[in-house]
Design a protein around this nucleic acid. Structure first.
Lengths: 126, 126
DNA sequence: CTATATGCAAATAGTTTGCACGGAT
DNA sequence: ATCCGTGCAAACTATTTGCATATAG
């Protein structure tokens, strides 16, 4: 079965064509904001409305299917939820790359136990 | 001389009463969002407008006098720029606490050199 | 068949901008 | 006298909501 459809079903979300398209775009882009999703979807799916994207993003976030990546001074982007990792964010163009982080070492570093963390590193890439 | 006035002058920003008030509120609260600043200032400074807060926050961020702390699914908060540190953020009430992080250990952990990073840990506090 | 999702339009919220006035140097 | 900041109102942008119709399961 299709990757996106499978993901959606696993999360207990009805796999409408719109949701499949949104999921595929987030997945293939890695990190993308609402407007990027909208522009990208419009090409092959002209009837899809912004309101539908917002509604679906919100319920996908609630279901912990996707998560928000906050970016200072810019629109948040979204990514498929996967194992804990960090991000390198370019403060000029706001592009994002994932990085592996060693959770054990981080735990020692902050001298705390925690469930979920997020490490962002800012470096110009352009 | 007043702490806030000193900070402002050091950053080459004219120390108007409004800016002093904004600076003092950010400093004493630790982390606060635009609306919090507005509500807090209104009490003792009823004429101050939201537009003035936005304008000043923007120029203070440009001057690297304060910085934005992004919070998923919520308004960003602002803090006085100081040494590199991390944050513990409560996903329920969005309160923030600073934590020390060991930069050397983090550097090893992510196997990268970088100028500026940000570590957020999410844990319910309420 | 039934419950839920979509798409439109309208409403709301958040932020920025333009401009006239006022205060500091 | 000049420059810059403030405060208001208007403009703009982003996001949410209500509702009628369409569609997945």
């Amino acid at each position: 079965m299709n990757y996106a459809v499978e993901l959606l079903k696993k999360s207990g979300i009805k796999a409408t064509p719109q949701r499949v398209a949104i999921t595929e775009i987030i997945h293939s882009s890695g990190h993308i904001d609402i407007d990027g999703i909208y522009k990208s979807i419009k090409v092959t799916f002209p009837s899809l409305s912004l309101a539908t994207i917002y509604k679906n993003i919100n319920s996908m976030v609630e279901k912990k299917f996707i998560q928000e990546v906050s970016i200072p001074n810019s629109k948040p982007k979204f990514e498929i939820v996967k194992e804990v990792h960090g991000h390198i964010i370019c403060p000029k163009c706001n592009s994002i790359a994932d990085i592996k982080v060693d959770e054990t070492i981080l735990r020692n570093s902050v001298d705390e136990k925690f469930d979920k963390f997020s490490l962002s590193i800012y470096r110009e890439c352009c």
